[in-house]
Simulated scan of single mutants.
Amino acid sequence: MNENDLSLLAGAAARWDLLARALPAATRESLARHLRATRSEPGSEARARAVAAAAGLLRPLLVREEGRLGAPPAASGFTLDDLAVLVLDGHRMVGPVLSAVRERLLAEPALDEAVVAARGGDPRLPALIRLPGPGGLRRLPLFQFEPEAADRVGATPRPRVLAVAVHLDVVDDPWGAADWWLSPNAWLGGVRPAALLGRADEARVDEAARCLNDPEGE
C-alpha cells in the first residue's frame, strides 16, 4: 500500500474541519464510498485500491487549498481510520488520544439498537448511552441492562443507570459518560462504576456520580 496515500489521508483527517467546508457534496459521497471499502480486510487488494482512490480524490483539492489550509502537522498522530470515522461514523473521537478511547469503549460488550428493540426495550431512552460504531450504527453498552438469565442480558435498563444519568451528559457526550462508567474511579478505590452494578454496595455509584457536579463533596 502506498505510504504517500496513507499519509495524505491521515493529513486530511488532521485538518478535516477546514477541508470539509471545501468538499463538494458529490465528492464527499464518492469519498465515503471509497472509505467504506478501506474497511476491507487489511492487506487485501480491495483495501489498497480504495486507499488509492480516496487519496486520488482528495489530492487535487488539497493541493488547491494548500495556501488556506496549510500543511498538516509532520507527526499529527491521525490515521486513515480516523478519516473513515469522521466521514462514515459521524463523530469526532479521532486523533492520537481520542482514537484509543474510542477503540477501548467500542470493544466493550454492547447491544445494537435493533437487538434492544427486538427484546422489548426502548433503545431511544434519553438516559441510555448510545455509542456510534462503524457506519454510525448505535451500540448500547451492555452494563446498562438487567440480566435476564444466567447467559443472557435483557433489554430492561438498570434503575441505577437511569438515576445516575442526571449527573452525566449522556445525550451530548455519550463517550464521556461511557468512559466514566467503564474506567477505574478514584472515589471507588479504583473500581469501575459499572463493576458495582448488581452488587450489594452499588449505591456507592451514586456518591461517585454526585462528585462530578460537586468534586469537593460540598
Rank of each mutant, 00 (worst) to 15 (best):
E66G: 05
P72W: 02
V85G: 03
A71D: 12
G56T: 10
V51T: 14
E41D: 11
A75V: 13
V87H: 09
E65I: 07
E65N: 06
P60H: 04
A48S: 15
P73H: 07
T79Q: 14
E41G: 06
V51G: 05
L80V: 14
L83I: 01
R49K: 14
L61A: 05
S44D: 04
L83H: 00
L88W: 07
L80C: 10
R64N: 12
A52E: 15
G43Q: 02
R49W: 11
P42F: 05
P72I: 04
E65H: 09
T79A: 12
D81F: 00
A84D: 01
P60C: 10
V63Q: 12
L69D: 13
S76R: 09
V85L: 07
R47S: 07
E66I: 10
A55R: 02
A50L: 02
F78G: 00
V51M: 10
A75N: 15
L69C: 11
L80W: 04
A52N: 10
V63I: 09
P42W: 06
F78E: 00
F78S: 00
A55C: 07
V85I: 12
A50Y: 07
L57C: 09
L57F: 04
A46Q: 15
E45K: 09
L62C: 14
D82R: 00
A46Y: 12
E41H: 09
L62F: 08
A46V: 11
L61K: 09
S76A: 12
S44G: 02
V51E: 14
E41L: 13
G43V: 03
R47A: 11
A71R: 15
V87F: 05
A48D: 15
A75T: 15
L80E: 09
E65S: 10
P72Y: 01
L62I: 08
D81L: 01
D81S: 03
E45T: 15
G70V: 03
T79Y: 01
S40M: 06
G77R: 06
E41V: 14
A48G: 11
L88K: 07
G70S: 06
G43E: 02
P72H: 06
A53I: 03
V85D: 02
A54Y: 01
